[in-house]
Measured scan of single mutants.
Amino acid sequence: TETAWISLVTALHLVLGLNAVLGLLLLRWQF
């Protein structure tokens, strides 16, 4: 079960990281 939790947490971190990068790019394009 630990491996499943680790994979789930890493997936969440990757998604949050991608969202942060996309958000910064969108803000930079708007201004």
Rank of each mutant, 00 (worst) to 15 (best):
W29G: 12
E2I: 02
L25R: 06
L8S: 08
A20I: 14
T3K: 09
I6Q: 05
L26Q: 04
L27E: 03
A11P: 03
R28M: 13
V15Y: 01
T10V: 13
E2M: 00
L18G: 05
L22D: 06
A20W: 05
V15K: 01
Q30H: 14
W5N: 02
A20F: 12
S7T: 14
V21L: 12
N19H: 09
Q30F: 07
A4D: 07
L18M: 14
V15H: 09
L14H: 00
T10E: 00
V21I: 13
A11I: 10
L27H: 07
W5H: 03
A20C: 13
V9M: 13
L26N: 07
Q30T: 13
N19P: 08
Q30K: 14
L18V: 12
N19C: 02
A11E: 04
L18H: 10
A4P: 00
V15D: 01
Q30G: 12
T1P: 12
L27D: 07
W5D: 01
L18K: 02
L24Q: 07
L24H: 08
L26V: 13
L8K: 05
I6P: 01
L18W: 08
L14S: 04
L27T: 00
W29S: 15
S7H: 04
T10S: 07
Q30W: 13
G23R: 10
H13G: 15
F31I: 12
T3M: 09
L8P: 04
S7I: 12
L27S: 01
E2T: 03
L14R: 06
A4R: 02
S7E: 06
G23L: 15
G23A: 14
L12C: 03
L25M: 13
W5F: 12
G23W: 13
W29C: 11
H13V: 15
L22Y: 05
A20G: 08
G17C: 14
G23V: 15
N19D: 05
L18N: 04
W29T: 14
G17I: 14
L12P: 01
V21K: 05
V9L: 12
L16I: 14
S7G: 14
S7D: 09
L8G: 07
L12G: 08
L24D: 07
L16K: 07
L22A: 03
R28W: 08
L18C: 09
R28I: 12
L26S: 04
L12R: 06
T3N: 06
A20S: 06
Q30R: 15
A4C: 01
L25K: 00
A11M: 12
T10D: 02
T3E: 03
V9E: 09
I6F: 10
F31V: 12
V21T: 05
V21D: 04
Q30C: 09
G23K: 06
A4L: 09
Q30N: 12
A20K: 06
H13K: 11
L27I: 11
L25F: 09
L22E: 03
L14V: 13
H13N: 14
V15S: 13
A4S: 09
L26K: 09
L22V: 05
L25T: 10
L8D: 02
W5S: 05
R28E: 04
L22F: 11
S7R: 04
L16V: 14
H13Y: 15
L18D: 09
E2K: 04
L26W: 12
T10C: 11
I6L: 10
L24V: 11
E2H: 10
L8F: 04
W5T: 00
H13F: 12
A11Y: 01
E2A: 08
I6T: 08
F31S: 13
A4K: 06
G17Y: 03
A4Y: 06
V9F: 10
I6W: 10
V15F: 11
E2G: 07
L8N: 01
V9Q: 08
L16H: 00
T10M: 08
L16D: 09
A20D: 10
G17L: 13
A20V: 14
A11D: 10
L8Y: 08
E2Y: 01
V9C: 00
G17E: 10
T3I: 11
L16E: 06
W5L: 04
L16N: 04
L25S: 06
E2N: 02
L8V: 06
A20E: 07
R28Y: 09
T10N: 11
A11W: 07
